[in-house]
Amino acid sequence: MNTTHIKQIICLIITLTFMTPGFAHAHKVIIFAWVEDGMILSQSYFSSKRKAKNCNINVVDGKGRVVHTGKTDDQGNYSFKIPENIDSGLVLNLDAGQGHRAHWKIPENELKVIPSKGDMEKAMAVREKLEQKPSVFKIAAGICIIFLLAIFLKLLKKKRDKNSD
């Protein structure tokens, strides 16, 4: 292998490493839910901002009983009346197929107290931060860790070979 080929491979690796984050999209699914005027409203979408259409939602209470089921509309929205005789918080489970699942917990006290719009925006911002697209820093860190592990393995093998000699 001559130096031209080595340069070609290095260029290819560098190009691929820095090109891919532009196309990168996390593909997690997210559900938000809040209480408004006796109704539970929810919004579901993938982290690429596509709406999670026609996805199953089931609502379970604190004892794990399914108290409500439904499907999101074309905008990824779904709303329903707060079920009666609820003595615990509720969990909305979204199933977008292929193992893509998300849930949102509504504590018992929120079912009685109407949260302000500011509180909801704050909660949504926290969740969105967790579901951010992968950063270049994380990708670079991951690759560095892989190569550090490889160096460690190489040293380990070298030491073992020396001992066996």
Partner: peptide, 23 residues
Amino acid sequence: VAILASAFFVASLIHINIGPAGV
């Protein structure tokens, strides 16, 4: 192994939208 593991690590971030979910 390290080069190909890195490629595998990055490849999963290249996302293609097909149907309701992405691959």
